[in-house]
Design a protein around this nucleic acid. Structure first.
Lengths: 122, 122
DNA sequence: CCACTATATCGAAGGTTGTCAATATTGAGG
DNA sequence: CCTCAATATTGACAACCTTCGATATAGTGG
């Protein structure tokens, strides 16, 4: 079970922020899985570098040197980011290009947003 | 080193989202520490319950039963959330009340926001 | 002061994670 | 085909995390 059906999962986890009403165990599990994928300094840097690259896309070979870790380790982190739905991969020739998945970060951001959750007070 | 100087740390980590330009190792470390605190289903539920409570505040005794874990474990998670700056604690009598730290979640949310980061394209 | 209650801390067990070196895989070009 | 380059996978190890039971601490009320 490497590649989850991200579309369905995303749809379920979408739209109701943390702070309006207590989330149930299933949604907590789901959100935690995504946060965990992002909760590592190396992976944050990888996402950041990819996001700041031309076309929000970067080759593995361009990512190894900036983060200063071995190639297998970088591949490992990229895989985790892909499985969590933050990056997608496309191979061109021998090179693998990782690209930001458009809505992924923004959706997570919305879930954490407190202002969006407070209806109007009461 | 339990309670970090959150105000200073928050100020440093504030305002420049992930996706505009590659973040440096220090900021990645800092952001990862906060995300890690949130990247656990139990802690997400705790934050969520506290956030949804009267005055965004709840007593430990009211948190144990909903998450279904032992009291020491719940205390442990609350400590982690406090050290990361998401909750604050105030003791009243024998009871300990944990409260949402106002801007904390929103700030994290902004850091992940992609739309805020794209200047206007180029 | 003593018992009781609420919470925190400690110590340990089991599982998960980040990292690397070694190896496998895949694609390009002679 | 054979070799080389880029990437992925495997296996191993140390560090860390979550959880618990046991125990310590602190506040309340007799």
């Amino acid at each position: 079970m490497l590649q989850v059906t991200d579309v369905a999962a995303d749809a379920a986890a979408c739209c109701t922020p943390l702070t309006r009403e207590a989330i149930d165990a299933d949604r907590a599990e789901d959100l935690a899985r995504k946060l965990k994928a992002l909760a590592d300094p190396t992976r944050l840097r990888l996402v950041s570098i990819v996001a700041a690259s031309e076309g929000e896309e970067a080759c593995v070979c361009d990512l190894i040197e900036p983060v200063g870790l071995s190639q297998p380790t970088v591949s490992h982190h990229l895989r985790i980011l892909m499985e969590a739905g933050f990056l997608s991969r496309s191979k061109r020739g021998t090179w693998a290009y990782y690209k930001l998945v458009p809505g992924a970060l923004g959706q997570l951001s919305q879930l954490l947003d407190v202002t969006a959750s407070r209806p109007v007070v009461e």
